[in-house]
Design a protein around this nucleic acid. Structure first.
Length: 155
DNA sequence: GCCAACGTTGGC
DNA sequence: GCCAACGTTGGC
């Protein structure tokens, strides 16, 4: 069961927004980067686990977990001309951008901060540390376990 | 809000 | 298909 990290700016859409959704479920849409698209379309599957990360804010870091509750499907916003995510070069037959649905699993009592993540040597190879701009990233099982242990050790 | 790093675009 | 110019992301 693979693990992923999804980034979001909490001013735009934070984990509290997810918690307030009906069934605490939302469509992860608006991803407009090919590397992230490839992961969504080809790798990410139902029942995978997502680390929810808050970027560009005061308390940067991992704030909770979610479950992938759908397979990948075309992001409807690419066909919506009123959306800022509209892509006129995409077409229904061969959609360019994809979404999955995620459901909130847990809101951590404390954020696993960027500083903490940087401090842990076993997390040196996290994609987050190397290729920080990718907004949908793979997380290894070992990295995931370390992060969960860390979360459980914080009060 | 700055700006380095990175991704995308388009002229050649 | 190279690469300069431009746009965007995200830590600081």
């Amino acid at each position: 069961m693979p693990y992923w990290l999804f980034k979001s700016e909490p001013d735009c859409y934070g984990i509290q927004h997810l918690a307030a959704e009906p069934r605490q479920t939302t469509r992860w849409d608006g991803i407009r980067n090919y590397q992230a698209r490839n992961l969504l379309r080809d790798q990410i599957a139902k029942d995978d686990t997502v680390l929810f990360y808050h970027s560009r804010c005061k308390a940067m870091g991992i704030v909770g977990t979610a479950k992938v509750v759908s397979g990948a499907y075309p992001d409807p916003l690419q066909f919506d001309s009123s959306s800022s995510y509209f892509d006129g070069k995409s077409c229904l037959e061969t959609p360019r951008w994809f979404s999955v649905d995620i459901q909130l699993q847990e809101v951590f009592a404390q954020v696993i901060s960027m500083q903490t993540i940087k401090y842990i040597q076993a997390l040196d190879n996290m994609v987050l540390r190397k290729q920080s701009r990718l907004s949908v990233q793979p997380v290894t099982e070992q990295e995931f376990k370390i992060l969960i242990q860390l979360k459980n050790s914080m009060h």
